[in-house]
Design a protein around this nucleic acid. Structure first.
Lengths: 200, 200, 200, 200
DNA sequence: TAGTAAACGAGACGGTACGTCTCGTCTTAAG
DNA sequence: CTTAAGACGAGACGTACCGTCTCGTTTACTA
């Protein structure tokens, strides 16, 4: 879900030469995250990342194919703290909890995610990686919904992928387009809506 | 929702000097739209727009405050062909029709919209205008849903704004994040899901 | 012998648009000259010239095709103070005066000329211009020698171009290769040697 | 005139460890010479030399203090085939032969020498070594001129160093500045000029 | 037969410059 | 006043080379 090995090791040579300095990777990603989270007008340039990280531009380009790749990996690293999958016994409360947690995390990383998508929209190459990362992160919600289906709280015929598109769609819509907040209340209402009891 | 008069005419002087040439506005917007719809890697620069339109950069900046504003207005102009509000007597079919039309239009303008959002994500100023435009366009769907509510096809308590966020959220999610198609089938399934009879 | 208009005016359009700011040209050439004359280790980069001149790099590249071209023009501008062609009545004294003046000027501009040639040796394009400039400057010496020939102080059969290659050769040899000084005494001895009375 | 033992072995420790691999030195110098002689635009970088020689950059820097030093030694190695000192009995023919040979050798190594000087002009350190090499090579011509003086073919008072500066000056001038050929005819004319019978 | 010291390849790294690009502002002269 | 042409400063882009610095392996001499 991250990493950045530029040339696959050709044959099975055990590796020679100086090893990659992990401090460099860390410094770059930390600087990238910091700049990404910076004030809204601030541009996130490779020059700026290199300067802040005390690293040469060339070194960044050695390990990451594009700016988007750096930003994505910074976000991935930064977003490592997984949102827990709750199990309260009822789908609607599980969902509400999960979404509230997710929304809170997303709100905190708002500027960062907006800029990440902005980069992806301008760079086909990094867009693909970004897509894969985002799609991979749907697993948590999916397992939650599947459990609801197994328990009979959700009709077996319900198309979960569509449901998930609606949920994550709302989230990104608020974040990217409407620029309106994602509250715990939104989480609760969305949970009820999805669980089929929207107005209880 | 369009236009762009930068300096309000000060006092009530009847106007002196050369008049604004409407052909300039058209040429700029047409060129912008053409470049926006171009191949995915192509950059849409003010220089390119000016060159293609046979117009000076300065003229563009006189009438529009930023690149984003030009692009937005180009999209607005281009998207003038309104999606009709159907009235088949049943919410689910109305919705399906409306969404299918909308999806079709959006798919056609895909590259264009992606670039528009990319610009908005980098330019706070144009983001605001863009937001207003997009929000304004929610009116059609809202009237449709309200009618459904009045007819009793949708519970009176249902929060339409949330529902709309889900619908448009899915649309933008597919467009910007997942980069997956929006089919007529998706429209139908989404319509059923929203109308409360997801699996009929 | 200088200037640098990049695109020839195509057809006979009378010219529109903002005019080239002569202050920019001056600032660039002055900064280039200053850096060229700087301490021996110092590199003369376009970035440095731009920074010192308070000018954008792009502006430099707009008007000069390469670094070498900037440096050459800076030198040309700087070397405008022509060495006078003396007329004392005798070739040997004329020559001695002329060479002493030339040597003095060249010594003063030593670092500058060394760097200029260094650039020319690495950039075929600027080498050509530089060659033309240097060859053009041979006119003074030539007229002096021709006069000597006409007066009978130099054999009519003497090949002046070869003689001049020896004279300027010595000068550049000392400057570029031997890095040894060019004194007034050298000028006098060289004058005697050329005038055919080397040991009077 | 060549070699490159970087740190003298401190005290009289008899030497331990792996010995220097002579193949490395050869490969480096051969690659350097080959690149030096390459097409005019081609850059001669340490990276390129290392790559072509199949040698690590570090190894090069272990044995040579700078790029200039490598290039100089490559040229020295390449120029080992000494130009013979002829003895025909007459200065003018001796000179003509010697210069024709020298010119031919220099013409063959043209690109190589130009690049060598280019490097020396940018690197004070290697300039010194280069100077020493070039000055050392003046011995042949000097002995020839001295013999001429002893034979009375050249005035005893003639300052040979100045004469040699004129000769080698012409050569380098043609090579570096004028970029014009050095022919056998030039050699003959220069020989006559120096021997005091320029128009026989 | 170990131990140890240097040579060597591979290649990471910080630094600096290159020449190109786009942005948004400013200037000029024509209509 | 509007417009086209286009100069300009700012600053990012991605590439190249420099010279230094680990690594881990290989080779040789010494104890």
């Amino acid at each position: 879900m991250s990493s950045s090995p530029p040339p696959p090791p050709a044959t099975s040579r055990p590796h020679t030469g100086r090893r990659r300095n992990p401090a460099v990777r860390d410094a770059v990603l930390r600087s990238a995250a910091e700049l990404l989270a910076g004030p809204d007008g601030m541009a996130v340039s490779i020059d700026a990342i290199a300067r802040m990280a005390g690293v040469s531009k060339h070194t960044i380009y050695r390990w990451w194919p594009s700016k988007g790749a750096v930003l994505l990996e910074a976000v991935v690293e930064h977003a490592q703290q997984e949102v827990a999958i709750p199990d309260t016994g009822a789908l609607v409360t599980d969902l509400a909890t999960f979404l509230a947690d997710t929304f809170r995390a997303v709100e905190r990383a708002g500027a960062l995610l907006r800029r990440l998508i902005a980069e992806a929209l301008r760079d086909t190459a990094s867009a693909q990686e970004m897509r894969e990362f985002i799609v991979a992160r749907r697993g948590g919600l999916r397992s939650l919904l599947v459990r609801g289906q197994e328990r009979g709280e959700l009709p077996a015929e319900q198309e979960l992928e569509l449901t998930m598109d609606q949920i994550y769609g709302l989230m990104w819509y608020r974040l990217l387009i409407a620029d309106s907040p994602l509250t715990a209340d939104d989480a609760a209402r969305l949970a009820r809506s999805v669980a089929g009891r929207p107005h209880s």
